[in-house]
Design a protein around this nucleic acid. Structure first.
Length: 813
RNA sequence: GCGGUCGUGGCGGAACUGGCAGACGCGCAAGACUAAGGAUCUUGUGGGUAACUCCAUGCAGGUUCAAUUCCUGUCGACCGCACCA
């Protein structure tokens, strides 16, 4: 079959007949199948795109044939750093390069022949979309979920710009390789932490890969413990968080993170330490992330000169500054128990601080630092308690005396969304000297991203130097004001796009509650696992926030999540230009066509595993298709004159093969197990071939029906190919308007089944046993079988294990 | 360091809730049809052995009538987090 022209032909027909469009009026059950949309990069579709979209399209087509009204949209995540970097390098404007790239990718996606509903296409850098991204920001602001604060951000000194965490690779700038520093800046944040508990709890109900749920769980990092107040000599309260209140009597000192606000005050109280403190704070600030985060790094710190009062013993403990305490976690201060914490132990050892053992290992000698649970000693009234009981009792006691109490902490931090970049959605906020920070009124949206901007890095947001953009009037007082010069993290754009797809043309709203509640949540979401703790978490957060604002009535965006594996280069490394191992799909598609390429991707790999690329099997897949075509065409040539209509054993065998294939494919496609599905198709084709070549007296009508079923069965896997054959079979309508063949359990009932016969768990024989026998009859049949009878002669049967349809195990002795 | 996933023929990979290990295919070998075949079709194909059979799912144990599957330890690969108190 000339796949090239066949593909063109059917793509044109599909477009004309609008068969791939979602029918809102349909009374079939909706199924929202979504692949993560793509970033319009300069190059063409790569193997990864194909691997994500091809097999998922097979799933979607399969569900369509099963009677669902499938919605499978596609769009582009078009804002972002790569386009801007490309612009800096080449001078081509991000808008121009992005639009051009989208055009190419659209064409390539269309050539793939997936059943994307192109009427629902959406591009995040279009005004018609980012208007609503800005709207979303304003809603979060109104709700108190978007706020501005001063924070430490990743700063690249050479590009003079802030970088997102994901753009810091091993502590270095993704663009230029400089070591990234931390810098204090005022930034917009989304209060995702407010949803920490719900984001954690709701994971349980999701049909997601366990691995991904676990990653999110760890990322959220819930830890249950206790807050304890130490009174500082300045009169201030130093609150620490600990998961080990049972060690509180062992506190030897208190440590503040160098960024802790109290540091300034302590310095003022102890001028004799000021120089040292300043030096240390500076040292900590300059230490880069790699150094600071390394657990192997030697602990450093300095004495503040001040003391705090232990809340239970009343003793004085020194206050230290040390950067092994992170300002961003908990309270930015810890109680140090040198005897029972490895870090405190290392620090105490280095600075010659005392250690107090308060936990004893049960029944064995305690070697410090001892960080496990044990029996409390030197702990006043709490001596003798251990573990959870001790923690509980001490927390309750602290609460009673007003010195602390139980507390839950999360590792999750608020989401920093400001970017000092050009190619993103402008933040719809205005800074007025009189009125402060004022939101842009909703009806003034969108805040348009100007085209004529100098986007080369200067240390400030590119928009900051665009006067036409920056200068505006304050919506409240009408006076002169400035716009926010930053743009939103592109993850904001992608955190709600699935809500927009069902009504991309809605120019009154981002989405309507009515449609969203009907079309969402997404039933099956397919994309890479690298988004586990970014996009997939953000999208959940935004969904919950929108639910709480009353816009939607569901709190989870993606009911089921599937991750495709990664196709590596032939050398087993990740495909990359630097490895020189990038495989382009184009040459294969040129030679074999889009259907064969996707069929091979499905057959050659385990979908969720992926693996190193190899094209060994691609020819065989094409060969398989040839065989299918030959069989179908041959069946058409047969004349039913003088043919019989009986279901003899040959027909029964073929019928069995067909229903066996249907049953397994139906189960496997649901599981995204495409390789086994294709294997079952091949088996069925082999059975067809066997019947074709071996049976001279054919049941022609039956055989023709089998051939047509084959075309239906293969349709989701090779859509253009199947349409062509379906037409050849004399049908006018698309094969995708057909139902996927259903299997009949009755056809799978055999007269007799082969059993493996074991004697003392060793296989001794294979035996055909009629279906429907009782266990006792099966045992008798087996024992009567000469080969077995001989083996068990003179021995008693102690046990007979029968697994219906599979094996019989005789335990004799 | 912590958490997780995975180790099966020469290769990609199967094995549903523990039940005949190696489905399906690649590759390889032999044969058929051919002027020819890198087309197509048929047969064979984990290893050892002349054979009965024996050995095989990273390695070592355990549970079980039965283990690729469950448990313990160990080695290796990959992924995520990483001074989270």
């Amino acid at each position: 079959m000339d796949m090239k022209s066949v593909e063109k032909k059917w793509q044109a027909k599909w477009e004309k007949s609008k068969i791939n469009l979602f029918d809102k009026k349909s009374n079939k059950e909706k199924l929202y199948v979504l692949e993560m949309f793509s970033y319009p990069s300069g190059s063409k579709l790569h193997v990864g795109h194909w691997y994500n979209y091809g097999p998922t399209d097979t799933y979607a087509r399969f569900k369509k044939m099963q009677g669902y009204e499938v919605f499978q949209p596609m769009g582009f995540d078009a804002f972002g750093l790569p386009a801007e970097n490309y612009a800096i390098k080449t001078g081509v404007h991000p808008k121009d390069s992005t639009e051009k790239n989208i055009e190419t990718m659209e064409q390539q996606l269309k050539n793939m022949g997936a059943m994307f509903d192109w009427s629902a296409e959406m591009v995040t850098c279009d005004e018609s979309y980012y208007k609503w991204t800005q709207w979303l920001f304003l809603q979060l602001y109104k709700k108190g979920l978007a706020y501005r604060k001063n924070a430490l951000v990743n700063w690249c000194p050479s590009c003079e710009t802030v970088l997102a965490n994901e753009q810091v690779i091993g502590g270095e700038c993704e663009r230029c390789g400089s070591v990234v520093l931390r810098k204090d800046m005022t930034q917009w944040f989304f209060k995702i932490t407010e949803y920490a508990e719900e984001l954690l709890k709701d994971l349980d109900g999701l049909n997601w890969p366990e691995k991904t749920k676990l990653m999110q769980k760890n990322w959220i990092g819930k830890s249950t413990g206790c807050e304890i107040h130490f009174e500082c000599e300045t009169g201030d309260d130093i609150t620490v968080f600990t998961t080990r209140p049972d060690t509180v009597f062992g506190v030897n000192y208190v440590v503040l993170a160098p960024e802790h606000p109290l540091v300034e005050k302590l310095k003022a109280a102890h001028p004799e330490r000021a120089a040292d403190i300043d030096a240390y704070v500076r040292y900590a600030a300059e230490a880069n992330d790699i150094d600071r985060l390394s657990t192997a790094r030697e602990k450093t710190g300095t004495f503040s000169g001040a003391y705090a009062i232990h809340p239970l013993t009343g003793k004085q403990v020194p206050i230290y500054l040390a950067d092994y305490v992170l300002y961003s976690y908990g309270t930015g201060a810890v109680m140090a128990v040198a005897a029972h914490d490895e870090r405190d132990y290392a620090f105490a050892k280095k600075y010659g601080l005392p250690m107090t053992q308060v936990i004893q290992k049960k029944g064995e000698e305690t070697i410090l630092p001892y960080c496990e649970d044990g029996i409390l000693v030197n702990s006043g009234a709490f001596n003798g308690l251990s573990g959870e009981a001790a923690r509980d009792a001490i927390a309750i006691h602290l609460q009673k005396i007003g010195k602390g109490g139980k507390k839950v902490n999360y590792r999750l931090r608020d989401w920093s969304v400001s970017r000092q970049r050009y190619w993103g959605a402008p933040i719809p906020m205005i800074h007025c000297e009189k009125c402060g920070v004022v939101p842009v009124p909703e009806k003034k949206l969108p805040v348009k991203l100007p085209y004529d901007v100098e986007f080369r890095p200067t240390g400030k947001s590119p928009l900051a130097s665009h006067e036409g953009f920056m200068n505006c009037t304050c919506p409240e007082c009408g006076g002169e004001a400035k716009r926010d010069p930053d743009t939103l993290d592109t993850f904001v754009c992608s955190s709600w796009y699935f809500l927009r797809y069902p009504e991309v043309k809605n120019d009154k709203q981002a989405f309507s509650s009515e449609v969203a509640n009907k079309m969402l949540p997404v039933d099956v979401y397919v994309g890479g696992s690298e988004h586990a703790c970014m996009h997939l978490l953000y999208a959940r957060f935004i969904t919950k926030a929108l639910r709480d604002m009353g816009y939607i009535n569901f709190g989870e965006p993606f009911k089921r999540l599937v991750h495709q594996g990664i196709i590596l280069g032939p050398d087993g490394n990740r495909m990359s230009k630097s490895h020189g191992n990038v495989v382009s799909p184009d040459t294969y598609i040129e030679e074999y066509g889009s259907d064969m390429f996707r069929l091979y991707l499905m057959f050659g790999f385990s979908y969720t595993e992926g693996g190193p690329w190899s094209d060994d099997g691609i020819k065989s897949v094409a060969k398989f298709a040839d065989r299918v075509e030959r069989i179908v065409r041959k069946s058409l040539e047969l004349s039913s004159d003088n043919a019989h209509n009986d279901m003899k054993s040959a027909e029964k065998a073929l019928n069995y093969a067909k229903h066996y294939a249907i049953k397994n494919i139906t189960r496997d496609v649901e599981e995204f197990s495409f390789n086994t599905s294709v294997a079952r198709l091949m088996e069925y084709v082999n059975a067809m071939q066997k019947y074709e070549s071996e049976v001279t007296d054919k049941n022609v009508a039956f055989y023709k029906a089998c051939a047509e079923d084959l075309v239906r069965m293969i349709a989701p896997f090779a859509p253009h190919f199947a349409e062509e054959l379906w037409e050849a079979c004399g049908h006018k309508n698309s094969v995708f308007l057909e139902s996927y063949p259903a299997f009949d359990e009755q056809a799978l009932v055999k007269d007799e089944v082969e059993y493996a016969i074991q004697v003392n768990s060793k296989i001794k024989a294979k035996l055909m046993i009629p279906e429907g026998l009782s266990d006792a009859d099966i045992q008798d049949t087996v024992c009567a079988y000469p080969e077995i009878a001989e083996l068990i002669a003179g021995k008693t049967i102690r046990k007979c294990i029968i697994v219906k349809g599979r094996l019989v195990n005789l335990i004799v002795g």
